[in-house]
Structures are given as structure tokens and as C-alpha cells.
Design a protein around this nucleic acid. Structure first.
Lengths: 269, 269
DNA sequence: ACACGTCTTCCATTCAACGGAACACGGGAT
DNA sequence: ATCCCGTGTTCCGTTGAATGGAAGACGTGT
């Protein structure tokens, strides 16, 4: 699909326009959109007008452009993320009240980590994550968990790709990373002191729906001696959330290996 | 913009496809999409393929179609709803823990009410609302608040439109509704015992950003004698949220009239 | 073996989409 | 007052992307 010089469909262009927006760029002028989306002014204006007509975009009083509420509605209404987010919210609240620092839920999107929900307290440790924001998979606690349970294809691609470090403590080489992923699968959670920010420690556990890892639940706490011990409430919250997501018949496998033979009384109908 | 018989642009069609999905229809087959979006099979297949390429849609293992995570990301990342939702979440949590029933945040979208966030407890009263779900403006507590502070155009349109009642207690006629809106503006919150469901009472307060009403914060509680008294914590939460949304210089106007002259010491720079 | 619904592929037709150019607007700067 | 620059809009001739009917492939239930 294409039309003339550039050779991309209307949908491609519409996505490029939407993609021009970001947490740092919530409202844009037409020309800014045109520049970011690499579209000529006339085309930009026409598409923005059309998208505005459908509520995908909106214009403020000075005619600048922002993402429309309709767009949010269409995306949220039937999104698989919605279930996850809504179920998680309660457990995240509990966890947040127990741990007292920020709590987040993330999924794998492409080769990166997408933050789906976040609870944060005013006095919490700095947290680079943001709702709908992305993080590299190899350099975040949630990312490591997701990577540890990801399809081989994704894992290999990420491990082969450039592993840019965020701090001296970020795992930078393929070998160490593989070992860490194995360790995460064994122990059931990731522990990342200072991997992204020196003063913060991230911990994360897998969230399973009917056994399959669909997300990671994590916390970010100060990088001190108390951090490690917080794995227990976190693991607990992860199990609770996994259980609530899964069908009533098949409870999630608690550990990765050898401990999954519980519900012998309810397993068979 | 149009192309042949039907006469609508690619974007229109893409939106129609997205619109085919809903809370009741999270995954659809190609032909279902085609039927709901009134598109011929070939066109449907082509557009779905293209949209899938960009992550707006996704296909499960049996090639059925669902909303893609990328779509959610694009919508959420820069949406005005995001700020609102994130700020509100903490206050909603507090309110929820005090009141013990479901709490929700809604905005006006077109002539209807769009629920932006919801916290609900397992044992709470039935609540028809859903995140990203719509409710008629005249028949919900949040809707009445939003209507009371809406631009004249919207208000008149809704009041003139057909006011289908949900229960015998729903305000059905124009006159009573106008009186109620005035009352809501005066007292600062809406009180709707049995308007939507006989066994439930809705209460809602306006949420202001720099004085302008941008959302409504509401609770749904049992329809009994205790309901009325819950307006106090609700109003408080609304004020707190409004304050956190507004710039530090201009605190929100607490009441509608005559009580807004507080911050005399911080008003001038 | 048949009937049915679903999905895909193919292809000639054609108008929607395109973007360059020219113009209108508004805010600085001089 | 005048020029300049970035912005946004309108106009219009060109053209190939988008279209949908038809036919075929596939799977499934009867």
C-alpha cells in the first residue's frame, strides 16, 4: 500500500501522526506534527482534520492538536490490557500500602517493556517508569522477568541486540544476563539493585494467566539492606493476582519447577 | 473524503473497525468485523491486515482479531485522560477505603458520560459502570454533575433529546431536570437514589482544573438512610483532587458562589 | 459427499488522496 | 510602518492506492 513518493498508506500516516505525540509532547501544532511525522503541511492538515472529525484527535481553544478522548475510549474499551489493569489495581493497592513505595505492572511489547499501570506515593524513590511508557527489557526488573519467560525468539533477539547499560550495575553482557534469567526462573523473582538508577532497587515477579506469563508486577524501593526482604510480599501479591486472572479450575503454577502439584482435590472435575 | 459507493475515507473505515469492538466483543472474526463495520470481506481483510501491521489490532493464535497493545499505548501515552486518571487514582483509593463501595471518575464525551476510572470492591453494590463505558448524562449522578456545569449547548441538547428513564426514579422531564441541575450547582454535589438501579444510590461531585469542571468524581452506595451522609467525604475528596489538578497559584473555587475568596495571602505573587 | 460460512487472492476500474504552489494570517523585529 | 518568517489554509491537476466483485481455497458440521 502506498501513495506516491513516500509510499505509505493512509493508515501508516495516521499512525505516524499519533506516534508524534508522547508524554513529552501532549499538544502539538500542525507544523510540529508535520515535522515529526514527516508529512507535508497540506497532507498533515487534511489528515488531522479527518482524524479530528472522528475524535481520534482533538483541538484546544488555540487550535493546537492533542489526542482525543475518543481515541482513548476506542483503545481502552476492548483492550486486553484493560482486564489486566483492572484486576491488578486492587493487588497493587494492597502491595503499595504494605511496601510504601511505587508499584508497577508491565507487559512485553515488541522487544521492550511497556508499563501498564503504576501506583506511586509522594515520598517514594525516584521512578523512571511512567504509565504507557517504555523501558528496555534487559535493564529493568520487570523486563528481566518478562524476558525470562518470553518466547525464545524474543529473548534471543534482545540478548543479541545492543545491551546499552543505564548504570555500572546494569547487566551488560549476554552471558551474565542468561545466568540471571535462569536464576530468576529458579527463584521466582528478579532483584535489580541499581540497574537503572544507583539509588533504587527494582524487584519484579511474573503474573500468570492460566499458567502463561502475561505480565510482570514490580516494586521500586531504596537501594539498601531492606530491599531484598520485600520479595516476600511481592511474590505473594503476584500469586494472588495470577490466581485472580486464571480460570477457577487451573490455579497458576507457584514456582517454575517441582512445586506445582497442589490442588489435587480440585484438579479433576 | 470518500471512495466510491459508500463514500467514506480510509480513516472512517478504520474507526468503524475499531468501533466494532466493545466490552462485549473483545475478540472478533474477520467476518464479524465486516458485518459490524458494514464493509465487504475483501476490504475488511485488507484493512485489518494493514492495521495489524501497525499494532493497532492484534491476532490471536486462531487468527481472530483483537485490539492491539500498541493502540492502547498510542492512546494512553499522551492522552489528557491520563493525567486526570493518575492524579485521581490516589484520591479515589482514599475515598474507596473510607466509603467501602465503588468509586468512579467520569468525563463528558459528546452528550454522554464516559467512565475513565473505577475502583470497585468485591462486595460492593451493583454498579453498571465500566471503565471506558458510557452512561446517559441525564440518568447518572456523574452525568448530572457534568451536565450542571457543561456548556449551554450540550446541556440544552441533552435536555431536549429523549430522556429515557432507567427506573421510575430517573428524572424524566425537562423541568424537573433543570431544577435538579440548579440544586446540584447550589449544594455542590448530586444525589441520585435509585435513578439507575433501584437498590443503589449515586453521589457525585465536580472535579475542577483551575476552576473549570473537567470531570466528576462519584460513588455508588446502597440505597438506604446512610447514603446522604456520604456526601461529606465525597465533597472533600473532590476538593482535594481539584486542588491537586490545579496550578499552585489558583486554588479551585470551593462552592459555586460567594465562598471563593480564601487564598488572599497567596493570591498575589 | 454436500452445503455452508469463512477467508484469501486476483484484477480492472476510478475517484480519493496527494502535494506543490500560491495565498492569508499574525507576531516579532527593525 | 514595513519586512520577514513561521504557520496554516485553499486550490487544483495528476495518478496510483484503494476498492469490491468474482472465483477459489479451506475447514466444519451434517
Amino acid at each position: 500500500m502506498a501513495r506516491s513518493p513516500d509510499g505509505d498508506s493512509v493508515i501508516t500516516r495516521a499512525v505516524r501522526i499519533l506516534d508524534a505525540f508522547g508524554p513529552d509532547a501532549r499538544v502539538l501544532s500542525l507544523s510540529e506534527i508535520g515535522r515529526r511525522a514527516r508529512l507535508p503541511p497540506a497532507t498533515t492538515a487534511r489528515l488531522v482534520k479527518e482524524m479530528t472529525r472522528h475524535g481520534l484527535l482533538d483541538r484546544d481553544e488555540c487550535r493546537r492538536v492533542l489526542i482525543g478522548t475518543r481515541m482513548w475510549e476506542l483503545a481502552e474499551r476492548a483492550s486486553p490490557v484493560k482486564d489486566l489493569r483492572e484486576s491488578a489495581l486492587q493487588y497493587m493497592g494492597d502491595l503499595h500500602s504494605v511496601v510504601g513505595h511505587s508499584t508497577q505492572l508491565a507487559v512485553l511489547q515488541g522487544d521492550e517493556v511497556l508499563c501498564v499501570e503504576r501506583l506511586t506515593a509522594p515520598g517514594a524513590v525516584v521512578n523512571v517508569t511512567e504509565v504507557a511508557g517504555r523501558l528496555p527489557a534487559h535493564a529493568s526488573s520487570a523486563g528481566l522477568v518478562l524476558l525470562a519467560h518470553a518466547p525464545d525468539g524474543v529473548r534471543e533477539r534482545v540478548l543479541r541486540g545492543p545491551l546499552v547499560p543505564r548504570t555500572p550495575h546494569t547487566l551488560g553482557d549476554d552471558r551474565a544476563l542468561r545466568a540471571e534469567l535462569a536464576e530468576i526462573r529458579r527463584r521466582g523473582f528478579s532483584f535489580c539493585p541499581g540497574h537503572i538508577r544507583p539509588e533504587a532497587t527494582g524487584l519484579a515477579v511474573p503474573v500468570r494467566r492460566d499458567g502463561e506469563v502475561v505480565a510482570a508486577l514490580g516494586i521500586v524501593v531504596p537501594n539498601d539492606d531492606g530491599a531484598w526482604a520485600l520479595n516476600r510480599p511481592l511474590v505473594l501479591a503476584g500469586l494472588a493476582l495470577s490466581r485472580s486472572l486464571s480460570g477457577p479450575v487451573t490455579p497458576p503454577v507457584p514456582g517454575s519447577r517441582g512445586r506445582g502439584a497442589w490442588s489435587s482435590d480440585t484438579a479433576s472435575p
